[in-house]
Simulated assay, not measured.
Amino acid sequence: MAAPTASSAGASLPTAQPPSLQSPAPAARSGWRPLEPVSPRARWALGLGFFVLFVAVWAGFTLGGYVSPTFLASPVTMAQEAWLLFTEYGFHKDIGMTVWRVLGGFVLASVLAVPLGIAMGAYKGVEAFFEPFVSFCRYLPASAFIPLLILWAGIGELQKVLVIFIGSFFQIVLMVAVTVGGARKDLVEAAYTLGASGQGVVRRVLIPGAAPEIAETLRLVLGWAWTYVIVAELIGSSSGIGHMITDSQALLNTGQIIFGIIVIGLIGLVSDFAFKALNRRLFVWSFFK
């Protein structure tokens, strides 16, 4: 019988791969390495698990008698107070008023701030003119304007919408300007080479390229708008979630206070998911970079 040749022996034996070329072990794909993604199911399970753990610890401290009910109501007490708010005090109307105020101020700020931010990012002369003032106003807390806004607009709905507008407008302007100004220079030069005008570059290169990040900026600022509306409703308001929290604080009803805070978080979470879903549908390419 002929002895096996080197080529036939090599074909029958597995070749060892360098460690850098070997596929990672299954345990390495579980999301516990730096920047390693996790599956959508695992993400939902982990996120829900934290809430379950948080409520369990909360219930353990309150129901176990480690914390006085005056300072922190138990989850059971909070659920009872929540039922009373909806069945006897018309809390759904307060929620509707708060949502309307947030949307009113945020939409008004977005409609005016996005075009100005695009102009500042695209034209350096516009940026040089507006940027110092916008940066100055960005550091002013919206709550500091409440006394002036009460003098100017009274204690009605306009005052609360303006608080949200002031808190959102300058943030959106500066963030949009930075996003547009960070466009790829090679794409701009290519557009000029193909004969595009200055306005054509803005319409066909800068705005489409920055649109996904502008939408993400609006999503982030919407979360900040929810903090401004509560501040606006704490003073001179007869409705809204912030008004309910203020009344509950006067009565030392921590169950209603906690439930009001949770409602704000839930509404914000729903709006955040809705914004993400809309951005994913409008800017599909940005999620597959």
Rank of each mutant, 00 (worst) to 15 (best):
T246N: 14
V202D: 02
A215I: 06
D247R: 14
M175W: 00
G265Y: 12
L220P: 00
F169W: 12
L194Q: 11
V263A: 10
V201T: 10
V178I: 07
A210K: 01
A232H: 05
V180N: 11
R203L: 03
A191R: 05
A225C: 15
A215D: 07
A191P: 02
L266E: 10
A196I: 03
V201R: 06
I257T: 06
L222M: 15
A210Y: 05
F169L: 08
G200F: 01
L266V: 15
L174W: 02
Y228R: 02
A215S: 14
W226D: 12
L251D: 15
L269E: 05
W226L: 11
L194N: 13
V229A: 05
A225V: 02
I214Q: 06
F273N: 11
S239D: 10
M175S: 14
P212L: 07
F169C: 10
G200L: 00
I235Q: 12
I267S: 06
G195K: 08
A177P: 00
N253K: 11
T217P: 15
L252K: 10
A215Q: 04
F259I: 01
G182C: 03
V180T: 00
I262R: 01
A274C: 14
V202G: 05
G182A: 04
T246P: 02
F273H: 13
T246M: 14
S237C: 05
I267C: 10
L234D: 02
K185R: 15
F259S: 03
G223Q: 11
G198I: 00
A210R: 00
V263T: 11
L234S: 14
F273P: 00
T254Q: 14
T179S: 13
N253R: 10
E213P: 00
F273D: 03
Y228H: 12
P212W: 08
L206I: 01
A196P: 08
A177D: 12
G181D: 03
I172S: 08
H243A: 06
I267F: 07
L266W: 05
Q171F: 09
R184S: 08
I214L: 11
I172R: 08
P208A: 04
F275K: 08
S237W: 00
W226R: 07
A190R: 04
T179M: 06
D186E: 15
L266Y: 07
S197L: 08
A215M: 15
G198C: 07
Q199W: 14
I267K: 09
G255N: 04
V173K: 09
M244Y: 04
G268A: 07
T246Y: 09
V188Q: 09
P212F: 03
F169T: 01
A177L: 03
L220V: 11
V188Y: 06
G200T: 05
G240L: 09
L251G: 02
H243N: 06
T227D: 09
I245R: 07
I262S: 06
L174T: 05
D247V: 12
G265N: 13
I230R: 04
L220T: 08
L194H: 08
I258R: 02
V231R: 02
V263E: 03
I241D: 11
G182V: 00
T193G: 14
G181K: 09
L218M: 14
I172H: 03
M244C: 07
L218I: 07
G242M: 04
K185P: 10
G181F: 04
P212G: 04
